[in-house]
Design a protein around this nucleic acid. Structure first.
Lengths: 155, 155
DNA sequence: GTAGAGTCGACAACGTGGTTGTCGTAACAG
DNA sequence: CTGTTACGACAACCACGTTGTCGACTCTAC
């Protein structure tokens, strides 16, 4: 507070720009690796499905959106061949959503690309500053559960 | 990857959570101060309009969206009384979008709230860590081509 | 065993924020 | 005067979210 501080409105802008830049680079690389149709929302949804699968309602709860919204995303994901719906023999109401091999591949590649992008930040900033950035953010935000209900903000 | 680093996918999540938490708090406080109908997109748009006003096409260029999209946002903003359309006497094709006093008030209050939110981060992290966070983000983010250029919130 | 409550997925209508494409009109350069 | 360009408006459409409703199904309690 002694020296000139940044105006408060820059903080959200910088956070968003950082987020946006990572997401944009992810999808550029994903497109080059055979997944041109993956959209940011699909990545979050597939993450919520996980390797064990989930029902549409469960996906909605994990993402913090309605089951109807989750169901629509699953429709698009299924249309692209990333997930499949399977009847649950235990419960005739439920339909289990499972990742196809293509869906699993997209997830694996995303994890690898994110690691490389983080490494690029480490090159520019140093490992300690990146670690401190993460630690600072963990301090100010309760990262338990990530609501993703903002459509226009990622690409 | 030699030592225990955070997985790369946490970085975007943390950045988004930080951004999202600031924006959510902004709109909560804005609602308490008489602006319950302001949505995040409106704030960006009003910022693009600025105190001097702008045309719909100009707003679109500043936000990096089409003039049609900008026009629709202006429609909603006008419906809520935050902006007004004025015929340009110099050019009969153009319609200047200007902030109403209510719109200017929303912008001024937003700037003040953002400053207070940043101060809250300083309380939790210390001024140096917040400053370093901003500095780190400025380093890795190409600020030049960022869609929302940030003119003074007023004057 | 069966009634009622709760959950599941599907369907519909709608709001918001974007996109293209087209059009009439106005400004401007030749 | 003519062609090009820029403006705003309108329409159709898409992605992603919301409520509300509904039939089918499961589970619990009586």
């Amino acid at each position: 507070m002694t020296d000139a501080e940044s105006p408060g409105f820059e903080l959200p802008l910088l956070l968003f720009a950082g987020f946006r830049s990572l997401i944009d680079q992810l999808h550029t690389e994903l497109a080059e690796r055979g997944h041109p149709d993956v959209r940011p929302a699909y990545g979050f949804a597939m993450q919520a499905i996980g390797v064990r699968g989930a029902t549409a309602s469960e996906i909605g709860r994990r993402l913090g959106v309605s089951k109807q919204a989750a169901g629509k995303t699953v429709d698009r994901l299924a249309g692209l061949g990333y997930v499949e719906r399977v009847d649950d023999p235990q419960d005739a109401r439920r339909k289990l959503i499972r990742l196809t091999p293509r869906g699993t591949d997209a997830l694996v590649q995303s994890a690898e690309i994110f690691d490389r992008l983080r490494a690029r930040w480490v090159d520019k900033l140093g490992a300690d500053r990146v670690a401190q950035l993460e630690s600072s953010l963990r301090t100010v935000v309760p990262v338990a559960g990530f609501p993703v209900d903002v459509p226009g903000w990622f690409g």
